[in-house]
Structure formats: structure tokens, C-alpha cells
């Protein structure tokens, strides 16, 4: 009867931003990214990719509540970088990794269909 629509889990409501950015008021080079309608799939790969960055001092994500369809990614970097720079770099690197993975998978499948 009063169940929320199923699509609310993955459709960003109109007038809402997909990603919002908030600087930490007390710590320099620390910030939180609130990502609407995303979950562990994006949260965890972003977190792990941020951990590979030497300039990232802290990176973590949380899903505040299972019925609030958003995640919060918190990043703290050294003065050599900034949370925004680290965040963009992480997305770019993951994107390139997936490009590479797609090519690797396609060549491997082509090889397999030729062999058998």
C-alpha cells in the first residue's frame, strides 16, 4: 500500500544532483562526496582505487541506511593533492582499467572461438 516505488532505488529524482561535494570545515584537504542512487558496487571500487593513491591519507565510504539510496565517500589527502583531484583520478584510472579489461576479454574470447 505505502511501499515506495521500486525504481526509487536507481532513478535520481528530478532536481537532485547525482554527486554533491562538501568540504570538511575543520580539516584542510578533506571532503565528502555524496553520491545519489549508488551502492557498494561503486562505493567499494572507488574506495579501493583511492587507497592506491599515495597522496590519499584516508578514503572510506558508507551506506548510511539501506532505505536511503545513497553513499557517502570521504577522502582526506596530503597538501600535494586535493580530494577532488584524487576522486577524479580514481574514476579515470578505473575507467581505463575497464577499457583494458574489455579489450583483454574480447581478444581472449576471439581466440577461444577460433580454437574450438
Amino acid at each position: 500500500m505505502n511501499a515506495p516505488d521500486r525504481y526509487e532505488r536507481f532513478v535520481v529524482p528530478e532536481g537532485t544532483k547525482k554527486v554533491s561535494y562538501e568540504r570538511d570545515t575543520k580539516i584542510i584537504n578533506a571532503a565528502s562526496f555524496t553520491i545519489e542512487r549508488e551502492d557498494h558496487t561503486i562505493g567499494n571500487i572507488l574506495r579501493m582505487q583511492l587507497h592506491r593513491d599515495d597522496n590519499v591519507l584516508f578514503a572510506g565510504y558508507k551506506l548510511p541506511h539501506p532505505l536511503q539510496y545513497k553513499i557517502i565517500v570521504r577522502v582526506h589527502t596530503t597538501s600535494q593533492s586535493s580530494p577532488m583531484q584524487a576522486y577524479n583520478q580514481a574514476i579515470n584510472d578505473l575507467d581505463k582499467e575497464l577499457d583494458h579489461l574489455r579489450n583483454a576479454f574480447e581478444t581472449e574470447m576471439a581466440k577461444h572461438s577460433r580454437d574450438y
Binding site: 582505487q49 592506491r52 593513491d53 599515495d54 597522496n55 593533492s81 586535493s82 577532488m84 583531484q85 577524479n88 583520478q89 580514481a90 579515470n92 584510472d93 581505463k96 582499467e97 583494458h100 579489461l101 583483454a104 576479454f105 581472449e108 574470447m109 581466440k111 577461444h112
Partner: peptide
């Protein structure tokens, strides 16, 4: 402005079917 710069931390995964 941002997004570029800095070392790349990209990986190159290998697949075997």
C-alpha cells in the same frame, strides 16, 4: 583543471578464458 596530473595508479588486468 583537475583530474589530470599526478601519477597514474591504473592496473592492467589479465583474462584467461
Amino acid at each position: 583543471m583537475e583530474g589530470g596530473g599526478g601519477a597514474s595508479y591504473q592496473r592492467f588486468p589479465v583474462v584467461k578464458v
